[in-house]
Computed example of a mutant assay.
Amino acid sequence: MIRNVVVGRLHPDADPVAVDAALAAITALDLPGRLDCRVGRDAGLREGAWGFAITSDWADAEAYRAYDLDAEHNRIRAELFGPLCAEIARVQFAA
């Protein structure tokens, strides 16, 4: 299994409604090999945290790669998250 973890640092003026819509769009993707997907905005428990996180579990590296190249996924990244984020970090690891 491959776990993909994404965190985003939001622009100070990012609209929380738009962030929620972008996260909902990620969870709505129905792609082969996705085992689980969790998203959420930072709970504000610690200063300096990033604005949101996405974790998704994939059956294998091929399923993750298909997700990474998926046209709708890339549209969501560019059109929904792009304007909201100052920075995005991601990591994939075998879990």
Rank of each mutant, 00 (worst) to 15 (best):
Y64K: 01
Y64Q: 02
P83H: 05
H73Q: 09
F52R: 14
A78N: 05
C85I: 03
E47T: 12
E47Q: 14
D60G: 11
G82W: 00
A86L: 14
N74G: 02
L84Q: 05
A49T: 10
L69I: 04
C85H: 08
A66V: 12
A71Y: 02
D68P: 04
L80V: 02
D70C: 01
R77N: 06
W58N: 04
T55H: 14
L69Y: 01
E72R: 13
I54G: 13
D57Q: 05
D57S: 15
S56Q: 14
R65T: 08
H73K: 03
A86F: 07
R75C: 01
D60V: 12
E79I: 02
E72G: 09
G82V: 06
D68N: 07
G44V: 14
C85N: 13
L84I: 13
A71D: 12
F81Y: 05
L45I: 15
G44R: 03
D60M: 06
A61S: 06
A78C: 06
A59V: 05
A71G: 10
A61R: 13
E62K: 07
A61D: 12
N74R: 11
L69P: 00
L45N: 13
D60C: 10
I76H: 05
F52W: 12
E47Y: 11
R77K: 11
I54M: 10
A59P: 01
A63Y: 01
L80R: 05
E79L: 09
R41M: 13
G44T: 01
A59T: 14
